[in-house]
Protein backbone atom coordinates (compact mmCIF):
# COMPACT_ATOMS: atom_id res chain seq x y z
CA UNK A 1 0.00 0.00 0.00
CA UNK A 2 1.24 3.47 -0.77
CA UNK A 3 2.00 5.77 2.10
CA UNK A 4 0.68 8.80 0.21
CA UNK A 5 -2.41 10.14 1.90
CA UNK A 6 -5.31 10.84 -0.42
CA UNK A 7 -7.61 13.82 0.04
CA UNK A 8 -11.25 14.10 -0.83
CA UNK A 9 -12.46 16.14 -3.77
CA UNK A 10 -13.56 18.88 -1.38
CA UNK A 11 -10.46 18.41 0.70
CA UNK A 12 -8.44 21.26 2.04
CA UNK A 13 -4.83 20.49 3.07
CA UNK A 14 -5.03 17.51 5.33
CA UNK A 15 -8.68 17.26 4.33
CA UNK A 16 -9.10 13.55 4.45
CA UNK A 17 -12.61 13.59 5.92
CA UNK A 18 -15.56 13.92 3.54
CA UNK A 19 -17.65 17.10 3.85
CA UNK A 20 -21.09 17.01 5.39
CA UNK A 21 -23.82 19.56 5.86
CA UNK A 22 -27.42 19.64 6.97
CA UNK A 23 -30.21 22.06 6.02
CA UNK A 24 -33.52 21.23 7.63
CA UNK A 25 -34.57 17.84 6.34
CA UNK A 26 -31.75 17.64 3.79
CA UNK A 27 -28.42 15.99 4.52
CA UNK A 28 -25.57 16.47 2.09
CA UNK A 29 -22.54 14.24 2.33
CA UNK A 30 -19.48 13.88 0.15
CA UNK A 31 -18.83 10.24 -0.70
CA UNK A 32 -15.34 9.43 -1.87
CA UNK A 33 -15.56 5.70 -1.39
CA UNK A 34 -17.04 4.66 -4.74
CA UNK A 35 -14.90 2.96 -7.32
CA UNK A 36 -15.91 4.07 -10.83
CA UNK A 37 -15.03 2.77 -14.25
CA UNK A 38 -16.51 3.20 -17.69
CA UNK A 39 -17.32 0.09 -19.65
CA UNK A 40 -17.95 0.08 -23.40
CA UNK A 41 -19.17 -2.79 -25.48
CA UNK A 42 -16.92 -3.56 -28.41
CA UNK A 43 -18.45 -3.42 -31.84
CA UNK A 44 -20.58 -6.52 -32.17
CA UNK A 45 -20.01 -7.68 -28.63
CA UNK A 46 -23.04 -9.17 -26.85
CA UNK A 47 -24.26 -7.90 -23.50
CA UNK A 48 -22.24 -9.39 -20.65
CA UNK A 49 -23.80 -11.73 -18.11
CA UNK A 50 -22.08 -10.85 -14.85
CA UNK A 51 -23.68 -7.49 -14.27
CA UNK A 52 -27.10 -6.40 -15.45
CA UNK A 53 -26.64 -3.29 -17.53
CA UNK A 54 -29.54 -0.84 -17.56
CA UNK A 55 -31.01 0.82 -20.65
CA UNK A 56 -30.99 4.53 -21.49
CA UNK A 57 -31.72 6.74 -18.50
CA UNK A 58 -31.49 3.77 -16.21
CA UNK A 59 -29.53 3.02 -13.11
CA UNK A 60 -29.22 -0.35 -11.47
CA UNK A 61 -27.93 0.71 -8.14
CA UNK A 62 -28.95 -2.29 -6.20
CA UNK A 63 -25.86 -2.68 -4.18
CA UNK A 64 -27.33 -6.05 -3.40
CA UNK A 65 -26.04 -7.29 -6.73
CA UNK A 66 -23.00 -9.47 -6.38
CA UNK A 67 -19.87 -7.67 -5.23
CA UNK A 68 -21.65 -4.38 -4.54
CA UNK A 69 -21.61 -3.43 -8.19
CA UNK A 70 -24.02 -0.95 -9.71
CA UNK A 71 -24.22 0.45 -13.20
CA UNK A 72 -25.68 3.48 -14.88
CA UNK A 73 -26.18 4.08 -18.54
CA UNK A 74 -23.84 6.78 -19.85
CA UNK A 75 -24.08 6.62 -23.61
CA UNK A 76 -25.05 4.13 -26.28
CA UNK A 77 -23.06 0.97 -25.47
CA UNK A 78 -21.30 2.68 -22.58
CA UNK A 79 -21.96 2.42 -18.85
CA UNK A 80 -20.47 3.79 -15.68
CA UNK A 81 -19.83 0.92 -13.29
CA UNK A 82 -19.97 1.78 -9.60
CA UNK A 83 -18.33 -0.26 -6.86
CA UNK A 84 -19.15 0.51 -3.27
CA UNK A 85 -16.06 0.97 -1.17
CA UNK A 86 -13.77 0.25 -4.13
CA UNK A 87 -12.20 3.67 -4.50
CA UNK A 88 -8.73 2.82 -3.33
CA UNK A 89 -8.08 -0.35 -5.27
CA UNK A 90 -7.71 -0.74 -9.01
CA UNK A 91 -11.41 -0.81 -9.69
CA UNK A 92 -10.99 -0.68 -13.45
CA UNK A 93 -8.96 -3.87 -13.31
CA UNK A 94 -11.73 -5.57 -11.33
CA UNK A 95 -14.32 -4.44 -13.84
CA UNK A 96 -12.22 -5.71 -16.70
CA UNK A 97 -12.25 -9.13 -15.10
CA UNK A 98 -15.94 -8.97 -14.27
CA UNK A 99 -16.94 -7.71 -17.70
CA UNK A 100 -14.42 -9.18 -20.12
CA UNK A 101 -14.07 -8.22 -23.74
CA UNK A 102 -15.12 -4.59 -23.52
CA UNK A 103 -13.18 -1.39 -23.06
CA UNK A 104 -12.71 -0.31 -19.48
CA UNK A 105 -11.35 3.00 -18.27
CA UNK A 106 -10.84 4.06 -14.69
CA UNK A 107 -13.09 6.95 -13.67
CA UNK A 108 -12.83 6.74 -9.90
CA UNK A 109 -11.15 10.07 -9.39
CA UNK A 110 -12.82 11.77 -12.34
CA UNK A 111 -15.95 12.39 -10.29
CA UNK A 112 -16.89 13.86 -6.95
CA UNK A 113 -19.94 12.23 -5.43
CA UNK A 114 -22.42 14.00 -3.15
CA UNK A 115 -25.16 11.96 -1.53
CA UNK A 116 -28.27 13.92 -0.64
CA UNK A 117 -30.84 12.42 1.70
CA UNK A 118 -34.10 13.76 3.00
CA UNK A 119 -35.54 12.66 6.29
CA UNK A 120 -38.90 14.17 5.41
CA UNK A 121 -39.77 12.10 2.34
CA UNK A 122 -39.36 13.03 -1.33
CA UNK A 123 -40.64 16.63 -0.97
CA UNK A 124 -37.39 18.33 0.01
CA UNK A 125 -35.37 16.26 -2.47
CA UNK A 126 -37.68 17.19 -5.32
CA UNK A 127 -37.78 20.83 -4.28
CA UNK A 128 -33.99 20.87 -4.35
CA UNK A 129 -33.81 19.21 -7.75
CA UNK A 130 -36.37 21.70 -9.10
CA UNK A 131 -34.02 24.52 -8.22
CA UNK A 132 -30.98 22.96 -9.83
CA UNK A 133 -31.64 20.61 -12.71
CA UNK A 134 -34.12 20.62 -15.56
CA UNK A 135 -35.44 17.11 -15.05
CA UNK A 136 -39.09 16.17 -15.30
CA UNK A 137 -39.50 14.57 -11.89
CA UNK A 138 -42.60 12.72 -13.05
CA UNK A 139 -40.32 10.34 -14.93
CA UNK A 140 -37.44 10.34 -12.51
CA UNK A 141 -38.24 7.82 -9.84
CA UNK A 142 -35.87 5.46 -8.07
CA UNK A 143 -33.68 3.61 -10.55
CA UNK A 144 -33.39 6.50 -12.96
CA UNK A 145 -30.17 8.37 -13.61
CA UNK A 146 -29.22 11.04 -16.08
CA UNK A 147 -26.47 13.35 -17.04
CA UNK A 148 -27.47 16.99 -17.26
CA UNK A 149 -26.32 20.54 -16.57
CA UNK A 150 -26.28 22.07 -13.12
CA UNK A 151 -25.16 25.71 -12.75
CA UNK A 152 -22.94 25.41 -15.84
CA UNK A 153 -21.48 22.10 -14.67
CA UNK A 154 -22.03 18.67 -16.14
CA UNK A 155 -23.32 16.18 -13.58
CA UNK A 156 -24.87 12.76 -13.22
CA UNK A 157 -27.95 12.67 -11.03
CA UNK A 158 -28.91 9.25 -9.66
CA UNK A 159 -32.26 8.69 -8.00
CA UNK A 160 -31.30 6.12 -5.41
CA UNK A 161 -34.68 6.14 -3.68
CA UNK A 162 -37.68 8.41 -3.21
CA UNK A 163 -35.76 10.38 -0.64
CA UNK A 164 -32.16 10.00 -1.76
CA UNK A 165 -30.21 11.17 -4.77
CA UNK A 166 -26.55 11.13 -5.63
CA UNK A 167 -24.93 13.87 -7.69
CA UNK A 168 -21.67 13.10 -9.46
CA UNK A 169 -19.81 16.16 -10.69
CA UNK A 170 -16.41 16.71 -12.22
CA UNK A 171 -13.89 16.27 -9.45
CA UNK A 172 -12.12 19.53 -10.31
CA UNK A 173 -15.38 21.47 -9.90
CA UNK A 174 -16.35 19.81 -6.64
CA UNK A 175 -16.15 23.04 -4.64
CA UNK A 176 -18.42 24.87 -7.08
CA UNK A 177 -20.83 21.94 -7.05
CA UNK A 178 -20.88 21.90 -3.27
CA UNK A 179 -21.49 25.65 -3.27
CA UNK A 180 -24.43 25.29 -5.67
CA UNK A 181 -26.00 22.43 -3.74
CA UNK A 182 -25.58 23.94 -0.29
CA UNK A 183 -26.75 27.39 -1.40
CA UNK A 184 -29.93 25.95 -2.87
CA UNK A 185 -30.53 23.73 0.16
CA UNK A 186 -29.98 26.61 2.56
CA UNK A 187 -32.41 28.83 0.67
CA UNK A 188 -35.07 26.15 0.65
CA UNK A 189 -34.61 25.73 4.36
CA UNK A 190 -34.92 29.50 4.83
CA UNK A 191 -38.08 29.62 2.72
CA UNK A 192 -39.65 26.87 4.83
CA UNK A 193 -38.67 28.79 7.93
CA UNK A 194 -40.43 31.94 6.77
CA UNK A 195 -43.42 30.34 5.10
Amino acid sequence: MTDLIPITALGTPGGTQPQRARFGALHLAEDDSMGLASFSLRRGQGAPQAVALPGPGGFLGGFAQGQGIGALWMAPDQWLILGTGQALGDFAAQVAVLLPGGCVTDQTDAWAGIEITSDAGPGPIEALMSKLVNIDLAGFGPGRATRTGLEHMSVFVLRRSESQIAVLGMRSAAASLWHALTTAAARLDHARGTA
Binding site: S38, S40, R42, R43, Q78, C103, T105, D106, Q107, T108, D109, A110, W111, M170, R171, S172
Partner: peptide
Protein backbone atom coordinates in the same frame (compact mmCIF):
# COMPACT_ATOMS: atom_id res chain seq x y z
CA UNK B 1 -14.75 1.85 -36.74
CA UNK B 2 -14.41 0.11 -33.38
CA UNK B 3 -13.40 3.09 -31.23
CA UNK B 4 -14.34 3.98 -27.66
CA UNK B 5 -13.80 7.33 -26.01
CA UNK B 6 -13.93 8.63 -22.49
CA UNK B 7 -12.49 11.76 -20.93
CA UNK B 8 -10.08 11.17 -18.08
CA UNK B 9 -8.96 14.75 -17.53
CA UNK B 10 -10.13 14.88 -13.93
CA UNK B 11 -9.24 11.31 -13.06
CA UNK B 12 -5.51 11.78 -13.10
CA UNK B 13 -3.32 14.31 -11.35
Amino acid sequence: LDVHLISTTDAWA
